[in-house]
Design a protein around this nucleic acid. Structure first.
Lengths: 213, 213
DNA sequence: TTATTATTTAACAATATTGTTAAACATTTA
DNA sequence: TAAATGTTTAACAATATTGTTAAATAATAA
């Protein structure tokens, strides 16, 4: 009988699950204890308080979420390559971790100070990564490599198309009566569409629009 | 001295504000009372319990959110017109109500039964609206009016590009050190970009892509 | 084996949050 | 005006949730 995970791991796994699906306020220490198959006192023995546990999970998730973005944004590739990498990377990461974005957004909304503290504490700087991408976009616009697009607009488009489907997935599944598996298949098949749409939007082309009149 | 709003309105306004910004679990009856400038007992006198109050606010917001979508989706327009209307409508609505999508998504995630109950109770049926749009898209694809795109993909693209920027706005503002006013300006200027991008993606065009090789 | 240490639990304590009530105060109406 | 009704509050009660402790059990080291 391979009992693999020890108590500490069991607790962390349970906490991860409960916190990411319910968020801090709605999570109960008892939910975590039950999920881990043990007594509430035990999780206090291992991790002092709810706050401390949440902090651990949040840091971990925060790292996962921003480290990969940052690495793509600050790589050596040009803008179009980064666009492709970002979209693929998000999809792969979020298919494994569908609750991640909502968890992080809610946590940051609930206490923005925490976000600021963490970006300082960890050697992950979304601010810097975004800024350097911003500059690169402006440069490529000036060089005529891509159309004249505002960096913020491009970033927002990529993030929106990649992340939103995971944020709204339960509602979407509900409205359209489809299972998570089916939904993820739709998303998987959608990746190339998204890539094409964003890349297309970067092409310098004078006569492709305004034909509706 | 025009004292306009009565106690009941004061409470509802406060509840609206607190619930939509914090969500059910993190909201405190005391937050609402303070926001309304009164005693906690008074809000119980008017609205029995926290659950009941939340239900009122949720129904209201749910209606606002889905009524306008449904009306656009089930109108007489063709797909391209609907795309334009949807994107404009979302922007106008969310600029007034930026917390709306996150509030609804979190509430639906927390209790999907509630969502189902409400769609039945109210004469608002996102399910039907989505379905009819779905069929219309397939029809226009067959007629050659728009490119061969999966209805789900189109809907997801529109919703993503329109809604996500509001969901992630606090994080985005934080990362890029910009105020809400500045951010909303960026979004305002982005509308036409989004419309163009989505419409462009619907055009039947054989030689606009795959030029990167 | 026995002593020591780590793990686990049940029972308890403290705090936070919601909900109630009786009495004070204000407003309406007879 | 006085009775009746509606509004508001402070104080209290009940419940939910987190956190602690002492004692039992298991694991480890001497």
């Amino acid at each position: 009988m391979l009992e693999q995970e020890n108590t500490e791991e069991k607790i962390l796994n349970a906490a991860r699950k409960v916190f990411t699906s319910k968020g801090y306020a709605a999570a109960r220490m008892d939910d975590i204890a039950k999920e881990a198959g043990m007594n509430r006192a035990l999780i206090h023995y291992y991790f002092r308080s709810k706050d401390k546990m949440f902090q651990i999970i949040f840091e971990e998730k925060f790292r996962i979420f921003f480290l990969s973005i940052s690495s793509v944004l600050t790589s050596d590739n040009d803008v179009k390559e980064k666009v492709v990498n970002l979209i693929r990377m998000y999809f792969e990461q979020l298919i494994e971790n569908p609750d991640l974005p909502l968890f992080i957004i809610n946590a940051v909304n609930a206490s923005p100070e925490n976000f600021i503290k963490l970006t300082n504490k960890l050697n992950v700087s979304p601010k810097e990564a975004f800024k350097s991408f911003h500059i690169q976009v402006q440069k490529e616009v000036e060089e005529g490599k891509i159309r004249n697009i505002k960096p913020y607009v491009l970033i927002l488009n990529i993030l929106s198309l990649s992340i939103f489907p995971f944020i709204a997935r339960k509602m979407f599944m509900n409205i359209n009566n489809i299972s998570e598996t089916e939904y993820f298949e739709i998303l998987e098949n959608r990746i190339e569409d998204v890539i094409n749409m964003v890349l297309n939007d970067l092409i310098i082309d004078n006569n492709k629009l305004k034909d509706s009149k």
